[in-house]
């Protein structure tokens, strides 16, 4: 990026993706962001969420198209892996940028 390019307008608080903003879902997204894919047990261990909580958050993220559910067979038993979709990755990156903007704006005042 060169300095001649017009800078984007600063994000508004209303633009924040509320689906990502919820702390538990944010943790789930962050954990899936740093790996290729993971299963339910791994996410429970890493986030400290209960089975019921994690299940409901994952359902919301899957409905929003942020999380992909991959059904596979391990030792002839069904096994489910979860990974972020492109939309999920973009949503998480956008959220981080927006939050960085807000924090900078708060610090500059």
């Amino acid at each position: 990026m060169t300095s001649q390019e017009p800078s984007l307008p600063p994000p508004q608080l209303n633009d924040i993706d509320r689906l990502v903003h919820e702390p538990s879902r944010l943790m789930v997204l962050a954990n899936l962001y740093v790996v290729d894919s993971a299963d339910f047990t791994f996410l429970m261990n890493q986030t400290g969420l209960t089975w019921g909580n994690l299940s409901s958050h994952l359902t919301k993220l899957e409905e929003a198209g942020y999380v992909r559910v991959i059904k596979e067979f391990v030792d002839r038993k069904p096994h489910t892996m979860l990974s972020l979709t492109e939309a999920g990755r973009t949503a998480f990156q956008n959220y981080r940028q927006q939050m960085q903007h807000f924090i900078q704006a708060l610090q500059s005042e």
Partner: peptide
């Protein structure tokens, strides 16, 4: 693996 779950780490 049964205790920690399965994960595929980054490239």
């Amino acid at each position: 693996t049964p205790r920690l779950g399965q994960v595929k780490f980054s490239a």
